[in-house]
């Protein structure tokens, strides 16, 4: 019951947020200089061939793209479709609907994000535990120094380094493209380094905290094997806070891999999002922005729900406990 009300409230908030996102995105797009038609003429074959828009072309574009209906009406027309998941055709990719583009490109971005987060966890957990068990030693400081470096290194830079190393120098891997599983290696590596660093720091501090808990001391005092105590008692409990970090991290990767996608020529959603903004493609920009917002909010909601299950102590919601205490 309490849960249903809680979820209900969150869903209402989610819808309101989506409306806010749509209004903000639309307004910013209207304020941005230039429009799709003019940019199209400058950035494509038109410039090469000296195509100067005749009056009729401009008129045609405006009818097609709705410049002759008032701006608020354009917004309403778009949102009416958006409610039933129909964003209409993209301006730039005129033969395809925005929802089809999302359906095609999102699995690509999501796959990369999932694999990258998995790899990040595989790196972060041992590294974090390793450092925590040697707190304040030279190895701890050394590990954390490397981790901080990794955190500071943007993914597009690591991607560029990896292209240089694995493709240009060693000639082991394709420098980009999307033709087979081989093409997953570089983007997943590039995308996982930053998150691995973030997660390792969380694992370390969470582990340190857990190690100081009385039940761990008690377990050690009982004479349990050190390894068992660390893995079964300390580690398991210290991983719970990771959910709060890994969830949003996953969402951020699913929606924000623009640079890596561009560098490694991956047909993911981030590339479309960036192109939509650059070319003032209203339906595509609105569609992807709303979709990204939705992903982020749903992930956050999921994290909060999962958290409730994972840690029975956490039951308080928005300051009010749903169990009545």
């Amino acid at each position: 019951m309490g849960l249903a009300v809680y979820i209900g409230k969150r869903l209402v908030r989610l819808v309101l947020s989506l409306i806010a996102v749509s209004i903000l995105t639309f307004t910013l797009l209207q304020l941005a200089p230039g429009n799709f038609a003019d940019l199209q003429r400058v950035n494509s074959g038109a410039t090469n061939f000296g195509g100067v828009g005749t009056e009729s072309m401009v008129g045609e574009l405006e009818t097609r793209y709705g410049a002759d209906v008032p701006v608020w009406k354009q917004y309403l027309i778009f949102m009416k479709g958006a409610v039933v998941w129909d964003f209409g055709p993209s301006y730039k990719y005129a033969s395809r609907n925005v929802q089809d583009i999302i359906a095609e490109a999102f699995p690509v971005s999501a796959t990369l994000a999932l694999l990258a987060v998995l790899l990040a966890l595989l790196i972060a957990v041992p590294v974090g535990v390793f450092a925590a068990l040697r707190q304040n030693s030279k190895t701890d400081h050394g590990t954390m120094f490397v981790v901080t470096l990794g955190h500071a290194l943007p993914s597009y830079l690591s991607a560029a380094f990896m292209i240089l190393l694995f493709s240009a120098t060693l000639k082991l891997l394709p420098s980009g493209g999307w033709n087979g599983p081989k093409d997953l290696i570089l983007p997943v590596l590039a995308l996982s380094l930053g998150p691995a660093a973030v997660l390792a720091r969380y694992v370390r501090s969470s582990m340190l905290e857990t190690l100081r808990e009385e039940y761990v001391t008690a377990a050690i005092a009982k004479g349990g094997p050190r390894r068992t105590v660390i893995v079964r008692h300390a580690l398991r409990n210290s991983l719970i806070p990771l959910v709060t970090v890994a969830g949003p991290l996953l969402a951020a990767l699913m929606t924000g891999t623009v640079f890596v996608e561009a560098l490694l020529r991956i047909p993911g959603l981030g590339l479309y999002f960036a192109n939509a903004a650059a070319s003032r493609d209203m339906p595509l920009l609105m569609g992807t922005a709303l979709f990204f917002a939705l992903i982020l909010m749903v992930t956050n909601l999921a994290v909060d729900l999962i958290y409730r299950f994972l840690d029975p102590r956490i039951r308080t919601v928005g300051g009010v406990s749903d169990d009545g205490h």
Partner: peptide, 19 residues
């Protein structure tokens, strides 16, 4: 054919005809 006036036969985007 100007896009606004045609049903389905729209030329979507700037028309490439060289006048």
């Amino acid at each position: 054919t100007p896009a606004g006036g045609s049903a389905g036969g729209t030329t979507l985007g700037a028309n490439s005809y060289q006048t």
